[in-house]
């Protein structure tokens, strides 16, 4: 798990501003309910840790999430807030499911 140092506010960066090789945890988003539900079903939800394989730089970006690689459009990546983490692998900073925010009801 990642915890922010108590003496300074947590750093939150949009996913599209991360660089290649950066590791981060999804820390929030301004996504629509449908998009959030889709990403959650694909395995990307709050507290999910991932590595950036291709930085956005105005275009789409690629992240590695567990064993899965996801390509995200720049618009989508800009709406995902992340918190950098230093842990060596995905599992180290992935919060147990019980500690995560409750799942959003998916839109039908």
């Amino acid at each position: 798990m990642v915890s922010d140092p108590p003496d300074r506010p947590p750093i939150r960066l949009p996913l599209n501003q991360l660089r290649r090789g950066d590791r981060a945890v999804m820390a929030g988003s301004s996504l629509s309910e449908e998009d959030r539900a889709l990403l959650q079903a694909m395995g990307l939800d709050e507290q999910s840790a991932f590595t950036v394989c291709r930085a956005g730089r105005g275009g789409p970006c690629i992240i590695q999430l567990d064993a899965t690689r996801l390509g995200l459009s720049p618009e989508l990546a800009a709406r995902i807030l992340t918190r950098p983490c230093d842990c060596p692998d995905a599992g180290s900073c992935r919060a147990p499911e019980g500690d995560r925010p409750p799942e959003q009801p998916s839109a039908k």
Partner: peptide
């Protein structure tokens, strides 16, 4: 449109 989120 569906947002471009592709599994590679």
């Amino acid at each position: 449109s569906r947002p471009m989120v592709l599994e590679l």
